[in-house]
Amino acid sequence: MKAFRGGALAAAMIALAACLTVPANAAAPAAAPAAPAPGGHTWSVKPAGTKGQSRRDFFVYTLSPGQRVRDKVVISNLSDRALTFRVYATDAFNTADGSFALLTADRQATGIGTWLSTGGAPTRTVEPGKSVTVPFTLTVPSGATPGDHSGGVLAAVTEQTTGAQGQRVNVDRRVAARVYARVNGALSSSLQVESLKVASESPLLGTGDVRVTYRIRNAGNVRLAATARIGVTGPFGTDLGGPVSRQVPELLPGNAYTFTDRVRGVLPAGPLTASLGLTPLDPMETGPAAARPTVRTARWWATPWPAVAALVLAAAGAGYLVRRRRSRA
């Protein structure tokens, strides 16, 4: 086993519905770890300390097909009463807004969630202020595809509550530690811009905004982040408005994000070009990734109404002078 050093330690752990009341069949967003849930239930899920290693915030491994690794997760009950946790593993995915999330209890894991098995009983009762260490085994199938596989080990408390219509609803409150496993083999780093659309304002006077919507897909087999820069240029490559930059959050293989950014203060100057520059980043090292930067452009025409008005007036004035000279002749 080889452990990566994660660069984004602040995002190391996720709490799923720890502070939210979420139906068991609804996707739960990532939140801060050990957040208080309704009723004062609070707990945390963290990797156990490993002798000779620095503190870990999540599990990250590099493994080969067929390889097995054993590890431990610590569940701490920070509430004022005993809690019974269901401990299990499942797969990760990206939500529509780019957040890291785990499958809900009603969805069957098909990836790394099936590689993980926890030891002992499926449930653990932990007294208030106490912790329990749960061992687990991660076994990479012999036919596992190369690249990154992501999931989490969860501690869930399931309770019944009354819905808006008076019905009884099962609620899963879950806290999890992320698990990343990179399977050795042919690795591919690739971010693709699937679409780039522009909607611009064409004010009669002054400048307007340009709204740029673009969709990014991770077409490789390793997780990637990125820096995106959007700018608008006019004739002869003149910069118009103020360029916009954003950090694209970690994108899991096969997943896609759609973003909308606004470039302000763009002067309608006839032929305009919006450019999207995408620089992939390795989320494990927070540095440049092997994937090449990508540039995508979109062109459109923005009518410069003041210039058009000036030309119309000039043409009208010239016509008037010509007619006047002819009438004197």
Rank of each mutant, 00 (worst) to 15 (best):
G241R: 00
L196E: 11
D282V: 02
W43T: 02
T294Q: 05
L251Q: 09
E201T: 08
R323F: 15
Y61H: 04
V266P: 04
L205A: 12
G111D: 15
T286K: 10
T227Q: 10
V69K: 13
G6T: 14
R292V: 15
M284A: 05
Q192T: 15
N221L: 08
D80W: 08
S190F: 07
P141A: 09
V132C: 02
N184C: 00
V140G: 08
A105C: 03
N184Y: 03
R262G: 02
V126F: 12
T42D: 07
H149W: 09
Y180E: 07
A164D: 08
F236M: 12
G163S: 08
L16N: 01
S79E: 09
G119N: 06
E127D: 11
L63H: 05
R5I: 07
G66R: 15
V193L: 10
A92H: 01
Y88K: 02
T133C: 10
R299E: 03
E285Y: 11
A256I: 10
S117E: 10
P38R: 10
L251Y: 07
R328W: 09
A307V: 12
L102A: 00
I216Q: 11
A269Q: 14
P47E: 11
L240E: 06
A35K: 02
R325A: 15
R81A: 11
L102E: 02
P135F: 05
R56D: 03
S275C: 01
C19N: 14
A329Q: 10
G185V: 07
Y88S: 07
R323N: 09
G242P: 03
L321M: 14
Q165E: 11
R86P: 01
G166R: 01
V87H: 09
L251M: 06
A186N: 12
A144G: 05
I112W: 09
T233P: 00
S202A: 01
I75Q: 02
L276T: 01
L187N: 07
H41C: 03
G237D: 14
